[in-house]
Design a protein around this nucleic acid. Structure first.
Lengths: 338, 338
DNA sequence: CACTTTGATGTTAGCGCTATTAAAAAACGC
DNA sequence: GCGTTTTTTAATAGCGCTAACATCAAAGTG
């Protein structure tokens, strides 16, 4: 850094200011510094930065064992943003028990993080958020189904997305549609179900729904589909609330010799890895997981730098990221009435 | 740390020594310090440590986009060990192109890492290892199929594991066994095939093999199975070189109305998340991915602390970790001859 | 018993960066 | 032109920790 400063003919502090995009540096000076940085191939040292910033710039990420695809996308987003903004990501693992969650949070807190990112399913954990608050640490829930009064939230509009997908299936002519619910302890499960139900109810001509409980695993999707397809009058389309379950549904359909999408349309939710791994590829809702993680990190950094915990002031952030319907090969027009 | 030192009645340096498990501290002193650490809830600051250790203790991890389950296991192992040994893990993403790989490595190198962990598929990248060597950075390949003269390696015995699985299928009475090969650019694909072939050749009574090319994706497994099962005389068991492909095989079997394992036994390799997600659960080979990552991190730390790059001295580490056959519900006795 | 050797601990000086404060330069009003 | 404000830059003091060296007591050694 000293080298860069010498080379650019300024002080190290000016270089630091340039690197951090702080206001109060003449544009001409900034350009000179930038050129020197490029020329000397300088890149700042994250550890030193974190140290000097007195812990600010350290952000925790709590994870348990959700669908592996989800986790790695979260990590990618968070790591990318951490790199970009020079933050240090401290990652802690825990399982779903409350004790383990508490222990992990305590480790993070004593590690001096400014804030903690809570991806699903911890996003809905009242206990985790309370624990964080108690220690004066910023909490950001990622992928919960609703806004919260007590924590910052980054999420997508699960209700709207689910409604869109349902409308899409209705437009294809399906009038008997199955829905596989997600795990009961997550608010997104409810939102997705609500979006589905609402749209089915206002369908014209009217449509029927078959709803089965699932828990976001492949197997639960498989089992739910087995039940639906054994119905006296099976559905012509099944909308599973995530991709893993949709893959399970597809497996069950194949097992019965059903063609997808000829005999049964199958759609999922999230657009994780598995959506393009299965055959035929899955029509699903793209959830911008990586960008949600980025956003969450940004929120922690901004809040911690501004020094205020907005959740405590009663005005937590509620960032809604756009989703997108991804049409692939697993869905098609309803088969002609028998 | 000062607090701990005062509380224990020693100097900060002694505390540091205790925290790092350095030799040359009386056991009695160590105990006193440990007690103070516990009492005061002290935990060392990773950033400061990394800074003071002058970059040693920073380890890079290069990842692209392998099966998501594999990645998250690697991350878990590496992160766990990083936490334990106070190392700072710097994670870089790249895609499979050589330029992108080189760019990512340059970023890591200029980030001042002591070593870089290269999980599959980069473990077999000659270019990556050469690039690392050029910059004097330690390389550890994880999950390659063979030892290397130019880099440290952590791996499992793919040949032996594959042979074991094959023997298991033979013992169940299967005499016509399909094998789905892995991606061509990875050495493990070759090892697994070799293990299979070797065992089939020495089968008594003799057995026949059907080999199809795959590339480690679900879809390639599905397609390979489609080809095999269309054979005039289809196999009674299919051994896929990873779990994703095995899941694909299973889907193809179900689609044809075949019962697994009644009509067709299916086995996989790696024991990733998907192995227990599918139905029936997959018989597979447990690859200790997390422990391999841990081990890799240890190697980087040890080498960098000892100051020698053993790969350059012509004696790179070749750590072989034990695997295990995991018998689940997807495999069974060969169906009676028609 | 003086004199090295060994082992356990303390002291000091940074690691690379940023916050803070002080100083200089530029812009402004009258 | 001279004070006065406002920008822009420089200097300095750590952040929490460890490497390297200094110290000091206990243990050998002839």
């Amino acid at each position: 850094m000293e080298e860069v400063a010498r080379h650019a003919g300024v002080s190290v502090m000016t270089v630091s200011r340039v690197m951090n995009n702080v206001v109060g540096v003449k544009t001409s000076t900034r350009d000179v510094v930038m050129r020197s940085v490029k020329e000397l191939g300088y890149s700042p040292n994250a550890a030193a930065r974190s140290l000097a910033r007195h812990g600010s710039g350290r952000v925790g990420l709590l994870y348990s064992n959700p669908s592996a695809g989800y986790l790695s996308e979260i990590l990618v987003g968070a790591l990318d943003e951490a790199q970009r903004s020079g933050a240090l990501l401290v990652i802690e693992k825990c399982d779903l028990s409350l004790e383990s969650e508490k222990a992990a949070i305590d480790r993070l807190v004593s590690g001096g993080v400014a804030g903690v990112i809570l991806p699903a399913p911890h996003a809905d954990s009242q206990a985790a958020i309370a624990e964080l608050h108690e220690h004066g640490v910023i909490a950001v829930a990622v992928g919960t189904g609703r806004m919260r009064p007590d924590a910052n939230v980054v999420r997508m509009d699960d209700f709207a997305a689910s409604a869109e997908m349902t409308r899409y299936l209705l437009d294809l002519g399906h009038r008997r549609i199955g829905f596989v619910k997600g795990a009961v302890n997550q608010t997104v499960s409810m939102q997705r179900l609500l979006g589905f139900e609402t749209e089915i109810r206002r369908a014209d001509p009217p449509a029927t729904m078959l709803v089965e409980q699932g828990n976001f695993t492949y197997r639960s999707g498989f089992q739910a589909a087995e039940r639906m397809l054994s119905d006296r009058e099976p559905p012509t389309a099944v909308f599973a609330s995530n991709d893993d379950m949709a893959a399970g549904v597809m497996a069950a359909a194949h097992r019965r010799g059903l063609d997808v999408p000829g005999d049964l349309s199958v759609t999922g939710f999230d657009d994780t890895h598995i959506a393009t791994a299965v055959w035929p590829e899955l029509t699903t809702v793209r959830q911008p997981v990586a960008r949600m993680a980025e956003s969450a990190l940004r929120i922690v950094l901004d809040e911690s730098r501004s020094g205020r915990d907005r959740a405590k002031d009663g005005a937590p952030v509620d960032r809604l990221l756009p989703h997108e319907l991804v049409l692939r090969a697993s869905s098609g027009s309803a088969p002609a009435r028998k």
